[in-house]
Structure formats: C-alpha cells, structure tokens
Amino acid sequence: MLEAKNLHKSFGSHHVLKGVSLEVKPGEIQVLIGLNGSGKTTLQRILTGILEPDEGKVSIGGKDVTSSLPEDRLLGYVPQNTGLFRHLTVRDNILYSLKNGRGSEESFREAVELLDLESYLDWRPTQLSGGYKSRVALARALASSPRAMLLDEPISEVDRAKKEYVLPLFRQILLQLHIPVLYITHDPWEAGEIGTSYSIMRNGVVEGIASPEEAFSVIRQQARDSGE
C-alpha cells in the first residue's frame, strides 16, 4: 500500500498542501489528476522524499517512510521529462540501481523484455524518441524492484498518436507488477486510458472521483471561474 495521511506543506505564508490524504492498494493504478498550481509537484517531492512535510505521514508497504531519505524508500519514480542519465547508455540507465544492491540481472532482463528495448540497449538517451525515452525511464524504475511506483506525467513528451499505443502497454505492465502505482497527470483522457481509480487534486487537497469524466467537468468549471 502507498499511503499519504493528512499532508501539510507551506512555503513561507503560502500553504501548498492542506491535508492531502490518499491510499493506493497493490494492483491499483490510481491516477491523480492535478490541476495547474494544485500542489502536485510538492506532493510528488514529498512522496519521493526530496521534501519533508510539515505535518502528516507517508507510508510504503506498511512502513512509515515520512522521514526516510529517497534512497531508502524503494519507490520507483518516473519523472515528467524522464530524467534519463544522458551520459549513460540505455543499458547502463536500466542497470543503474544494481550497483546500489537494488534489483537484479533478472529484473533487468524482464524490464527490457516487457518494454521491448533489446535493440536499443547500446543507444544513448539523446538518440531516442519521446516514446522510447519514457519506456527506458519506466524500465529503469522497474529494474530496481520497487515496492510502489510514482509516475509523474511520464509521457508528456509523447505525441497523442503514440500515447494511444504506449498507454495500454504501460497499463498492462504496471498491473502485472501488482504493486501500488500512483500516476500523476493533468490530462483526463490519459487518466482514462491508464487508471483503475481516479482522484483529483485542487487547491492543496486530494478528492476521490469516480471517473476521469468527473475531472473534465471540474477542469471546465475551473476554466470558467478563472475566465480562461
């Protein structure tokens, strides 16, 4: 289980997270639809351990990790721009965690096979298309044998046509892992393609929603309110 309970975070007088709670079960892909300025980046940084919350608790696999360092959380993380190490080959990117005793040759081979990356192992990230970059980023996280996954707009650099192919592939692989997956996006269509459950983040709080369509109406309402 990936769990956040009553998270608060302020920067000076700006209260960014105002009691965020969420719960993601193993085998669930919960999509968090974050509206602009809703605090989703702050939440992502707290979940990965880059930031500490002012108040509240984060636990992964039943273990309280609120004060744990990012390297001790066993959380697979795929950021928005993939964060691939451009000085390393695809192979060395995916094998990165093995030097830290995370994952194994077997988890490496499995990730490469699942994401069909065999022919690209000696390529550099700069030679890859957006779709393949996000595949490598996912493979790198998977090869580290994480207890939970956090994907923050992992295919934002991929065009819509390719997303229609990549999203079902990612969904199938993530479900196969049977670990909690939190997938952050601002696109309700993308949410519908990959998620098994949905929540929306606005004004520093997270609310559960039944479907991505609900997010559409919230976004439309917000756009009307802000006069966009």
Binding site: R45, T48, G49, I50, L69, P70, E71, R73, L75, G76, Y77, P79, Q80, N81, G83, L84, F85, Y96, S97, K99, N100, G101, R102, A137, R140, A141, S144
Partner: peptide
C-alpha cells in the same frame, strides 16, 4: 536537470553517490 538527481536518489544513491 534536478529530476536526474532525484531519480538517482530513488534508485538508491546517497547525495555523494
């Protein structure tokens, strides 16, 4: 890109690593 460093941390690196 700071995300590269964040990813390295989630893959088990301490800051010096």
């Amino acid at each position: 890109d700071r995300e590269m460093i964040s990813v390295a941390r989630t893959l088990g690196d301490s800051p010096p690593q």
